[in-house]
Amino acid sequence: MASQGTKRSYEQMETDGERQNATEIRASVGKMIDGIGRFYIQMCTELKLSDYEGRLIQNSLTIERMVLSAFDERRNKYLEEHPSAGKDPKKTGGPIYKRVDRKWMRELVLYDKEEIRRIWRQANNGDDATAGLTHMMIWHSNLNDTTYQRTRALVRTGMDPRMCSLMQGSTLPRRSGAAGAAVKGVGTMVMELIRMIKRGINDRNFWRGENGRKTRSAYERMCNILKGKFQTAAQRAMMDQVRESRNPGNAEIEDLIFLARSALILRGSVAHKSCLPACVYGPAVASGYDFEKEGYSLVGIDPFKLLQNSQVYSLIRPNENPAHKSQLVWMACNSAAFEDLRVLSFIRGTKVSPRGKLSTRGVQIASNENMDAMESSTLELRSRYWAIRTRSGGNTNQQRASAGQISVQPAFSVQRNLPFDKPTIMAAFTGNTEGRTSDMRAEIIRMMEGAKPEEMSFQGRGVFELSDERAANPIVPSFDMSNEGSYFFGDNAEEYDN
């Protein structure tokens, strides 16, 4: 993207840094990872977990959730003011799984939030270390993106479920800051804005008074975040219109849905970061690795190297396929839920299948599930090659597409044709070009129609051997075009429920 120079890199967003050079960025990201790792080690000690239990991804998720809940100030305040039966607002906890007599047992633990905050700050040299908290939120978000298709949420806001490739980060909490905003897809931002506008339509006082002023500035800020994701002048001009509207209503909703559809071809720039579970960072720190000293990046080879040398386990339900569970977590670790499966298959070195073909449910185990038949197995999170994460949407291309997802959002900077089903997408653009945004709409449609099938995206960008740390010898991959490109292809993934 041309304006790259004016933006802070995501590592800076990730670490609240002012302008830093590459070495400083690597050190501050490393410091953040160190903090998460030290916190995780301490929690495993508190909970008396064995090494194996500490490497269980379900335990990692519970521990991450506990610290996120302990620092969720708004919710904590709300819980104190609106006490609900049987919930102690000062405590947080969740299921911890232990191996007892050759069987997995679930144990519900409860801790004072104050105590968890103390352990977290102690692991982070006394700081609140917001960057580390956001990092864990993005890992949870990436896992949700890989596990669930947001059909219901899309339909509720009037969008087409086939636009799911635009929904990265749709389950990120509001408090995820600049680093969170960077990884949100165009569809996620559109959905947040539509929800806001709908509230304004239904509630006369939404934009009024002292609160209304705050609401208005939040609305304009979200519009600017979305505008910054678009790469064409016409899309940005249309966002200006939406932002400046005196009284946002149905016309703005129409414009936003139009823009979301246009992003299936004229893709937005959305950041991709490899955020790993805390149970990967903990053992690495415990083994003596100093992330701050060595430096770390979320968008280069580092996460690949770390996963190459990590042992992570997962509980497996009786009829689940461990290899499929591994694929789910591998995609989440690489922030690749909406990437082209052919690119992923090449990088991973084994075939990556669409969601609907995987015999696996989510990673988390519900409290009512029976533990008797639970097994555990090693997650295979290694890769054959590594590639640089991208934040450009890439230019655009036609490809055989599917009944489910009709476009992709690249996660890796790797040369390819970008699949999208042009006739299906263009069919949504018939007729409606009147109104105050008509010239911009016409211009956007013209650009979409001009998108050429034979153009290559990320020209000359390749993948790298894991021994090639400096990215000196790019390998331009070859793809098996007979395979499906979309992950949520004609899909039956479970729906995400809060």
Rank of each mutant, 00 (worst) to 15 (best):
A2I: 10
S9G: 10
N21H: 05
S28E: 00
K31M: 13
I33N: 13
I33E: 06
I41T: 15
Q42W: 08
M43Y: 09
E64G: 14
A70L: 04
D72G: 12
E73H: 15
N76D: 08
A85V: 02
D88G: 06
K90T: 15
I96D: 10
R99S: 06
K103R: 06
W104Q: 15
I119D: 10
W120Q: 11
R121S: 03
L133E: 09
T134W: 10
I138E: 10
S141V: 08
T147K: 01
Y148W: 11
G158H: 00
D160Y: 04
M163A: 01
S165V: 10
L166S: 13
R174D: 10
R175S: 06
A179S: 04
A181G: 01
K184V: 08
K184H: 07
T188A: 08
T188S: 07
M191C: 15
L193S: 13
D203A: 02
G209C: 05
G212H: 02
M222W: 12
K229Y: 11
K229R: 13
T232C: 13
M239F: 09
Q241I: 06
R246W: 13
N247R: 03
E252A: 14
I257P: 09
A263V: 13
L266W: 12
H272W: 11
L276C: 12
L276Q: 14
P277S: 13
V280M: 05
G282Q: 12
E292K: 03
E292Q: 08
P303W: 09
L306D: 08
Q308M: 00
N309K: 01
L315F: 02
I316K: 10
E320C: 05
H324M: 10
Q327T: 12
M331V: 13
A332S: 05
N334I: 01
N334V: 07
A337D: 13
T360F: 10
E369R: 07
E369G: 09
N370G: 05
M374H: 07
S377M: 09
A387N: 13
A387D: 13
S392H: 05
G394T: 06
T396D: 12
Q398R: 14
G404F: 07
Q409N: 01
Q409R: 07
S413A: 02
D421N: 05
T433C: 00
M456A: 14
F488M: 11
F488H: 11
Y496G: 00
